[in-house]
Amino acid sequence: MADRQLTFEIFRYNPLKPEVAPYMQTYKLAETTGMTIFVALNMIREEQDPSLMFDFVCRAAICGSCAMVINGRPRLACKTLTNTLPAKIKLFPLPVFKLVGDLAVDTGTWFRYLSEKTESWVHTSKVPDPKVQEERMDNAVANQIYEAERCIECGCCIAGCATANIRDEFLGAAGINRVARFMVDPRDERSPGEYFEIVGSEEGAFGCMGLMACDDNCPMELPLQMQLAFVRRKMAAYGLGYKEKKRIKP
């Protein structure tokens, strides 16, 4: 296994040099034990081509910077072992997001828009008192929130989504999952109507066509199918006038 010679075909384009048309460049590299795409790209950059652009920060599937299309699938470079792939590896930048250059894309602008659009903060009228102990939360609810909160904003669900590829304003699984996170949070005082304003349209819950490429390609393995269906049902219930029993807020 360790003797394999890997062939990388990498998408090259620098938007600052528009006179050079996009092209695929081939690199050869000897595979080492435990090699990830992230390690391989660093070796290529150090030993063969210092001009190669790609993003990374944490190399441990926490920061979400190194997402790219690896042999057709959006994945994290740092979490993808080369020994799980054939010897020929094709790398593309994530679609949907703005290209910085080669494999590097700007997911930050997109996710900032998402955070602003979904107002990703706890909406509360309570003024926190620093001297008092924090309110306690039911463990099951805390876990539910944490499960959604594990999203690292890598953008794989957006890149894999056919709808997001053709509809710029679609919030995708990342956005709908974010809303689900606040819906279950007892500290957030937003009404179902206010959530409906955000995701009660084709920009949100009803834009999803159920292709589930988000669910199948999430590097953090978030339960996106369940989250999308949960928000869809909640929004339909509100839209049809179903009145929820008032949640008891501690």
């Binding site: 299309v69 057709g72 699938r73 593309f92 679609p95 894999g160 056919a162 590829n165 053709i166 066509m209 159920g210 292709l211 589930m212 490429a213 199948d216 390609n217």
Partner: peptide, 18 residues
């Protein structure tokens, strides 16, 4: 074209069935 190219690139069962 985007959807077709996307489906070919992703080669993902539920995307193709759609």
């Amino acid at each position: 074209r985007i959807v077709w190219q996307h489906a070919k690139m992703l080669n993902h069962f539920d995307t193709w069935t759609w």
